[in-house]
Amino acid sequence: MGKFRKKYTAHFLESEVRAKKHLGQHFLTDENIAERIADTLSLSGYKKVLEIGPGMGVLTKYLLKKEAEVHVIEIDTESVTYLRENYPQLEGRIHEKDVLKYDLSQIFGEEPFAVIGNFPYNISTQIVFRVLEMRNQIPEFSGMFQKEVAKRICEKEGNKTYGILSVLVQAFFEAEYLFTVPPSVFNPPPKVESGVLRLTRKKNQKLACDEKLFFRIVKTAFNQRRKTLRNSLKSFNLPDSLREDTIFDERPEQLGHDAFIELTLKIQPYAISDQQ
């Protein structure tokens, strides 16, 4: 088939489920892109996959072709009805829940699973934070975001788009921006381009510092990203002797995740007792 594969899903699908603006739904209609996204998962060392927001299953059908136990989680009742009618092989694995609120251990217990999807723009950042919370169980995470968000997650230090998500994600995952997707392959078309990324969990994801403090320092620093760390971290009430360290001359976007770990280790003796 190759390049001669039919590019779009059958037209009748477009009328089956109505895209809902309040859910941020933009249904992917390009089969080639759906297959490329499904192929981002290696399925190495695990066989369970969670697709978030499957809609009418354009990505789901390619996941089901793989040797994996595919689960889908969908908050839209109309989409759930469509999936039950058109994907009988998903019986018992369609979860009509809010992924941001549902306890995913009800599905996977303590077993590893990948997360994938064409993520609604309005909750995509929250989904990333959810993945970070469950990173011990999630070896791979891939899917489609608003291009600006996908780029930010994968950005390196020294750039204006580098921020909280960049540091926190890259501390635990290898982040790759894979390709850009135009608005024309969605129904309805979004007003911006989309981007597909892949996150692969690092073999050694245990930080050398206190993780809660690391998160707190990163978020506090970027909340005043134009200031030097000496000023943005004033709330930590650090002694002057420590604040004279040259690392405090930097602005947050100048520090990679390793440098933030180093910074956390410097602050840790003074701040740990403050958190308790």
Rank of each mutant, 00 (worst) to 15 (best):
G2A: 14
F4L: 13
L13R: 14
L23E: 08
L23A: 12
G24W: 00
D30R: 09
N32H: 13
I33R: 10
R36K: 15
A38V: 05
Y46P: 02
V58R: 09
L59W: 09
T60D: 07
Y62C: 02
E69C: 10
I73H: 01
E74Y: 13
I75N: 06
I75W: 03
L90S: 13
R93C: 15
I94E: 02
E96K: 14
K97G: 06
L100F: 06
L104V: 14
F108A: 08
A114K: 05
A114G: 08
N122P: 07
T125S: 15
E140M: 10
F145G: 02
Q146I: 04
Q146Y: 02
V149Y: 00
V149A: 00
V149S: 00
R152N: 05
G158Y: 07
V167N: 04
L168G: 04
L168M: 07
V169G: 01
F172P: 04
E176P: 06
L178H: 10
S184N: 06
N187D: 05
K191N: 06
E193D: 15
L199F: 07
L199Q: 00
K202T: 12
K206L: 09
C209F: 11
E211F: 13
K212L: 03
R216S: 14
I217W: 04
K227Y: 05
T228M: 03
L229Q: 00
L229C: 03
N231L: 00
N231A: 02
F248S: 05
E253N: 14
L255S: 08
T264H: 02
L265C: 09
L265S: 10
K266R: 11
A271Q: 04
Q276D: 12
Q276T: 11
